[in-house]
Design a protein around this nucleic acid. Sequence first.
DNA 1: GAACACAGCG
DNA 2: ACGCTGTGTTCT
Length: 576
Amino acid sequence: MKYEYITDRSDLAKALSHLEKDNFLFLDTETTSDRIRLFQIGNEEEIFVIDIFELPEAVELLRDLLSKKGIVGHNLKFDLKFMYPLGIVPYATFDTMIGSYLLGFERHSLSHVAETLLGYTLDKSYQLSDWSKTELTKQQIEYAATDVLVVRELFHRMRERLNSLPEVDRGEELLKTRTARVFGLRNPAVIVEMAFVQEVAKLEMSGLPVDEGEIERLSKEFDKKLQKLIMDFYIKHRIDPMSPKQIGSFLKSRLGLDLPETQKGNISTDDKTLSEFAHIKEVRDILEIRRMKKALDKLKELRGFIRNGRVYPEFKQIGAVTGRMSSSNPNVQNIPRDMRSLFRASEGNMFVIADFSQIELRIAAEYVKDENMLRAFREGRDLHRYTASLVLEKPEEEITKEERQLAKAMNFGLIYGISARGLSEYARSSYGVELEIEAADVFRKKFFRFFPAFREWHDSVKSELKEKEEIKGTTLLGRPYRATTFTDAVNYPIQGTGADLLKLAVLMFDVELRRKGLDAKLVNLVHDEIVVECPAEQAEEVRNTLEDAMVKAGHIVLKHVPVEAESVVSESWTKG
DNA sequence: GAACACAGCG
DNA sequence: ACGCTGTGTTCT
């Protein structure tokens, strides 16, 4: 393998001059706990291993060089988080780990992907070796260079595969972006994901500000209350209200309740089951204890992650098979709505919060090309109300709240792969609407009469799954998916297109921020919602910029249905 | 340590 | 009925 270990100033200048003609470079770093030790960088012919401990002045040269170059690497989020504090910001990114996700591989580490795509067996044992000592071993340096070599070979195979994905009829605008041009990419979803790597790195660095005092206060208060509730319950009934098993047998044999069984044959005591027996005092007590416990758990989780007034969650760029992100340590995508006021913009700043309205239904309408639903959206109707009026054959003005909720359950059913039993169940548990299975089936049939493209779509998915055991398709922006069940097959393209749209909106927002010289930070993303923190005096302009970016992204993804975004400026993560 | 139940979000 | 993560209990 051809590589050069650079510890000398004149060698460095010469090495970097060899890389100037390329549009993109292959890159990896080796780091100690807090900073970069080695910078491995190369083109198609050469690889240089630059020792930053020996040559700190390399940082400035790399800053200049990389500001004009695309970089190709594996899990670039990791490297970018070390590079940004040094002021090194690449012109564009291509991440072979993200490529692995997009191509639907099972495992995504460099060694797994190298094996899948190149048939290589990689030795990663040096990755965790000591990169802080003065003299690195020959093996360490060779290991460092090897990673770049592997990434280089991976890139060519991977680009070939990504560029061979089915063509889509939208997103042409994205083919002119820097990411597409620098790396020669043709699939709009791939272009979005590769560019989005930098957004995720910045998002993780920003963190999310919290009201630490309030979290401490509430923790103490809830802890006290919960202890008392548990103790009172135990004194009365001599069972642990935290144990579903004990609760199950208590409610069944001591109170004589007729509770259903779980899959494993246990007595079901979950919220949806117990809420039917909410007229019984003991059941209400259990539910109250559970609610309090949950709130306390969430507070405890948050508390352990606070560093100088913020939490720094980990975001997986492709956390779900559909392309959605996920968040952990702490998870900031499942904060209870009534606890969101615990997140407060820091001194002098405000949050700008925006979400897409009814985005998955709009996507579904466009995906199946249902003329009736598309028209309803174009006419600016409240779609749940409209559906209720069609199915119940009453004017929209006469639709009650309950009837609208029922229609909402039906509309959601479209996205999840509706069944009469599922609809009946969902209507009751999520919306408190009683609906017999027979009645649900009548509604379902009517529903499909009014939105015939959905019936045709569901039918064709079913028959395709009878012929083969899988369906392969793409989202509207060309993200590939593979489904083996009916419900997955109708859900993946819709949820996946939603993920495409959110990521595109964030990218377009960032471009506009830089153009306008605003200094807003992305601090959270929750599937159809974007949360930004910015100086209070810029908030209104940032709000307009964000909403505009979301709607413009909507126009790229959806051609036949309008996209609407709602936004607010707020001190805390709440509406208004 | 794995599997399950439960509960929060979109 | 689709997609997630965290906590705690129970089973092995």
